[in-house]
Amino acid sequence: MIEVKNLYKSFDGKEVLKDISATFKSGEINQIIGQSGSGKTVLMKSIIGLFRIDRGQIWYGDRNLTDMTRKEIKLLHQEVGMLFQGAALFDSMTVLENVMFPLEMFSKTTKKEKIERSRFCLERVNLKSTQVSSLFPSEISGGMQKRVAIARAIALNPKYLFCDEPNSGLDPVTALVIDRLIEGITQEYNITTIINTHDMNSVMEIGANIIFIEKGVKAWEGSKDDIFTAHNEALDNFVFASNLYKKIRTSQTGK
């Protein structure tokens, strides 16, 4: 579980996040939704400790990130996996080397066990490890890159998984596959997963706990089932921007 309390973050005097408080539960998909530029990425990177926050607390269980030394943050990071918007695979390494990288850095197991673990992670994200292992990231499709990135993120058995717009740039079918994969892994290993997204399909598929960020302020929280009946103006503008969702609302609520 991760708890954020009264978090503020600014860049050069420009406030990007204002008084954000939220609880992210383990074993469930926690989503941060909002328009582009609303501050989702900054919030995520602040929670992880890539950005130094102005004020507030970030609790990982009973450990407060803002009290941690650099060394303690480093250790915390070994419990964290992250999936970046552009996959961020190391392009000088093969697929297998990418997945093995965190293991090589920090795992005390033998080389054979590391390779086995990497193969297992690749299979877990439904990749044929024998086929993709020796390919370079530039040689595989965007959807496969995302899957390799997930495999790399789970290699060290993380307690916390962060995904920044995991299905941006993917077609709807592949996007759904990736969403399902993240959901499955989250439940299977009881991970605290936080996903940034502006994709309503993804929200309606897997969003268990959702917080909605509007211009750096938390404007709403709830689950996907509450969204249609939230009656929050900013949220409605976001959710019902597309005709499809307007029609769904009409068919469900008659409005």
Partner: peptide, 17 residues
């Protein structure tokens, strides 16, 4: 190019210097 494609962030997140 590793910086702008977030490969460096990816390393930091793993706890790598």
């Amino acid at each position: 190019s590793m910086r702008i494609t977030e490969q460096i962030d990816a390393m930091e997140i793993m706890g790598v210097n």
